[in-house]
Design a protein around this nucleic acid. Sequence first.
DNA 1: GATGAATGAGAGTTCATTCAT
DNA 2: TATGAATGAACTCTCATTCAT
Lengths: 211, 211, 211, 211
Amino acid sequence: MGTARGPQTTGSDERNAARLSARRAQILDAATSVFARLGYHGSRMDDIVQASGLSKGAIYWYFKSKEEIAVELVRQLLHDEEQSLAGEPAAGGDAGARLSAMADDFSRSLRENPSRAPLALELLSLGQRIPAIKKHFTDYHETYVALLSDLLRAASGGAASTQQIRAGALALAAMVDGWALHEALITTPSGHRDGLGEAVGILVAGLRSQV
Amino acid sequence: MGTARGPQTTGSDERNAARLSARRAQILDAATSVFARLGYHGSRMDDIVQASGLSKGAIYWYFKSKEEIAVELVRQLLHDEEQSLAGEPAAGGDAGARLSAMADDFSRSLRENPSRAPLALELLSLGQRIPAIKKHFTDYHETYVALLSDLLRAASGGAASTQQIRAGALALAAMVDGWALHEALITTPSGHRDGLGEAVGILVAGLRSQV
Amino acid sequence: MGTARGPQTTGSDERNAARLSARRAQILDAATSVFARLGYHGSRMDDIVQASGLSKGAIYWYFKSKEEIAVELVRQLLHDEEQSLAGEPAAGGDAGARLSAMADDFSRSLRENPSRAPLALELLSLGQRIPAIKKHFTDYHETYVALLSDLLRAASGGAASTQQIRAGALALAAMVDGWALHEALITTPSGHRDGLGEAVGILVAGLRSQV
Amino acid sequence: MGTARGPQTTGSDERNAARLSARRAQILDAATSVFARLGYHGSRMDDIVQASGLSKGAIYWYFKSKEEIAVELVRQLLHDEEQSLAGEPAAGGDAGARLSAMADDFSRSLRENPSRAPLALELLSLGQRIPAIKKHFTDYHETYVALLSDLLRAASGGAASTQQIRAGALALAAMVDGWALHEALITTPSGHRDGLGEAVGILVAGLRSQV
DNA sequence: GATGAATGAGAGTTCATTCAT
DNA sequence: TATGAATGAACTCTCATTCAT
């Protein structure tokens, strides 16, 4: 009688599961481009409907609200980010060089995907009102800072104190997010590309020089 | 003369000018606290009405739209910020120490005024859809980076190249804004207060150590 | 497909088309009575909502604005009017008698539908600010004058010049609309019903008597 | 103590009376042009304020509401009209010719003062919701029809019945107002100027030809 | 008398969400 | 499952009117 209120896992063979995640991905893709273009508050559900090629009802079948779409979007973006972070330390080699490389990678990805920074800023500011989003960012931040700490410790060659390592890691994390923020918001004719890796190098050198 | 829309500048003696700016300040103060608490999109004009103690009509007498309030708010905040920046270089002394001091000041002000970072993040993200706001941030950024460059040049004792100086200044600016962003968004039980000044010191040391 | 705004024409079988025009008719009927009663500017969307038995959202699903409702109302009223005009000349017989009959019909319809003249006046005056409405009236007027010219030519038995025919047709059209206007606006205790047909007869006689 | 609620006649010497009517005229002039341009509902009190060169308070000192301005405007326009009508019959001569002349005068005045017809239509439609305006139009109409009846009686040379005279007069009045209405609303490339006088001539001829 | 800042009820419109089919 | 028509609370902004000065 009653119609269930979301995607059914009951009696779900693999077909169902596949469709389910395909649909959700379809919706999240649409939301990604729409949010990046119009911002969360500037986007109407109808925009997502149109961009996804699905119907309004379908959207609400797979997500219970606009907010839930944003939350899931953040979860997925940060999950992917953590995945690629997880691959990082596996690669051996000079820690300082790896930090610089990570910075350059990040810098390049901002340039290659121009909607990334704007979207991130949009979602970041959403975090202030949506606890689930805030939690995801906080969790990711923790992981990220831990990784940076490890790399900084290795890169500083034992010259820096634990407190300095922590300060450096927090500063690096802030620098990276701040860089993205400026990328999204500041229009510079000259452009400030490619300086991030260099800055990381300088900071590492500073840590190393501590007596 | 005719009363068209908004406060009259015609025949304005000092009384009028005083009332005008008092009213605008009253409204901007209200908007500041409301935006900080609820966010721009979460704030209704009625919230500002209530917080200001004025009537709806009065708000629209002094500002033509909600957006204009936000723009003026940003303009004023950044104007004040530039003013206090302008006082900085006047003080002589060690440039490196001054940079650290600025960082600590900033860090402390975030702590003492807990709504500052959230409000900033909110307004920052507005900049993506409101060109006038974006322009204000861009202009401020330019000034800020120029100041940081001067200080870094002095602090590095000639050891760093122009390019390194620039990268460092951009990195510092990013670090500061990113720090505020994390302050607004990341809930850490331990807290990461007071690390900013230290991080700046490390970065300066790094610049100095460049051969 | 996407649900953007307004009823879908995509995949519309007859059911859909039927519902669509039923709903629009429902809204236009409501608007007709509300506009007649309160005038366009005196009517609130909520009045139409209430009169239609639909919700506010439904109204805006079928019409994008209050103005569009008025435009469509005019379009439909004049379309119907043209339809009944089109039937006129088909009937043979004495042209003069037919003109008088048309006048009497018009006169009677004003009496039988007391809200017709007030509504017409309301919409007429809207035409001054809404170009689409003005266009509809202009087009209708052209058709109407052409028909009157044909009838007058036939009725005058060749006695009148082309210029006189045209002047007479314009005068007749003006007389008819002016009659409605007075019906809507002038409160005469005696009433001036039934004089229109007679007046038309006099004018025709005048045309015939031209040497 | 208490401030009176309108222009004072107390202690009024002629100076006061003169100022009073000058001010009211100033306001009515402004309202005339503003209403003609924007329509009654499209005009804001601020528009009248601006056009009059007075202050908002002054407007409300001389008129108690926007509606009262419209009412007084109609009263004055129709009063002037009646005045010039009153001069008409004084001039002797052929009644038919005089009717045609009146029509031509009217036609010319519409052409020379292009805002007249639009303004009239606007005020006419206001009459439907503002009883005082309706009353003014009704009274004027009565006077006008009486005059037309007199002229038609004289012009018809006794050939027409009282009923025919009355129908003719009502028809003429309708024709004239309808003509103005079309002037305001219908955009014809060819233009239909100068046909009104001719049409009146035809109608008179028709009355004369009645046996 | 005159000014224009201030009021606040209410207008048209939007849009996240629901639900009959 | 899927659709898109329907809902209605809530929004920003307007503007006739008032009143302290």
